[in-house]
Amino acid sequence: MNIENTKAQMKKGILEFCILSILSHEDHYPSEIISKMKDAKLLVVEGTLYPLLMRLKNDGLLSYRWEESTSGPPRKYYKLTPPGEQFLKELETTWTELVDAVNRTTQKKLS
């Protein structure tokens, strides 16, 4: 069992969950998503985000629109699609259940 692999696997699903929640409040372009996730220390390198966004988009959870920028190339503003919102809702319930379950099992271990 590779610890790095396990860590990456754990983070994987959470990253998707976080991206979707960030986008649920407001549309963002990648740099904004990155800075938010960096603030939360969820993301180490920016490069990781792009393939993730691409996949979420390909799976129909996200859509984007182009917006001209005053300082630089045009930006892709990502937005949740209705299936994306549905997906996020399910993830949220799963997440709370999971946190609950994990908390319970790990605390049992401690006691």
């Binding site: 994987k12 699903g13 390198v45 920016e46 490069g47 990781t48 393939p51 996949r55």
Partner: peptide, 20 residues
């Protein structure tokens, strides 16, 4: 360094691709 070196990239994405 901000974007991540190809190694970090690769490591993260190898598993990403996998789950995908």
């Amino acid at each position: 360094s901000v974007m991540g070196s190809p190694e970090e990239f690769a490591g993260d994405n190898a598993s990403g691709k996998d789950s995908a």
